[in-house]
Design a protein around this nucleic acid. Sequence first.
DNA 1: TAGGCCATCTGGTCCT
DNA 2: AGGACCAGATGGCCTA
Length: 312
Amino acid sequence: MLTLPFDEQSSNQTISSVRMSWTSNKLVKLIKPEIDRAPEESLDTRREDELRDVEVKEEESEAGDPAWLRRRASQKKKLSHSRLDRVRLRRIEANARERHRMHGLNNALDSLRKVVPCYSKTQKLSKIETLRLAKNYIWLLSEILSTGKRLDLLTFVQTLCKGLSQPTTNLVAGCLQLNTCSLISQPDEESLSLYAAYDHHPGPEAGGSTTAGSGRSLRPFGSFCSPFESVNDSSSPDSSGSLDMGTLSPPFNFSGLFTLKHEEPVDYRSCHNGLRYCPINQTSSSDLGPYDIQLRGQFYQVQGELNKPFHN
DNA sequence: TAGGCCATCTGGTCCT
DNA sequence: AGGACCAGATGGCCTA
């Protein structure tokens, strides 16, 4: 029987990924000569047992069966014996390919996690939540681009969190608070406008060369305005929508609205990033400026609104 | 302990 | 024939 080379595990790999990584290529290399040498042995003991059961049944049936049936059974047996090893090998190779494919998919999902609002290495969004958040995010950006209207914070987060679970919603809300804190650290910026965050990220039309905020006609996230002032006349991301998506460019990277994701991921559960994370109950009110208090009030409002559906 | 999430295995289907 | 893709099954891990 083969022994698994677990001594080759790297320290930062999960058991599953280790199981995968060494099996992907090494297993085939290990298995192939092993199969060539001893076809009756296989790593997949479950499959092995099933196949053995089939053979036993065949042998049992041969005892009292007519000649033609014995002949057929014999052919079947000969066939399975001659192809069994190859089938096993192909199955192992297919498994490796499938793992590789799924890893590619997961890598793509990781990339997606990094460009949607709320990115944390320690508190990773689930796959489904990542996709939902990305969908809402794309819809919001498209809506902002097409209408050019200002978005109030409440509407923005509400739309962003549509269909998300409560933990994810809380995470998004936490990210939101995080960013308002980072804005507070720049008191000279125009009336705490979320638009300020946009200045850190050039749009697609800039092609990476144009500095953002220099006479843009776009107003992705305006100053705080009254709730439900702007985009409520439009369809929601869950509805069919009436947006003309044909003229839209690929989504901007507005991730700076929430976190400076490409610098250093934030652990929302631990406060070690200074101003970038200001937990409500860990910062004394004396540290807060008037803006901060106002924003916190709005944050509570947002969080309360967001949690409403979950409490009903 | 139940439920959610995930990685992996597996067989089926489609395409080249 | 073989690879890509898909969906169901399964078992492990984690958390409330």
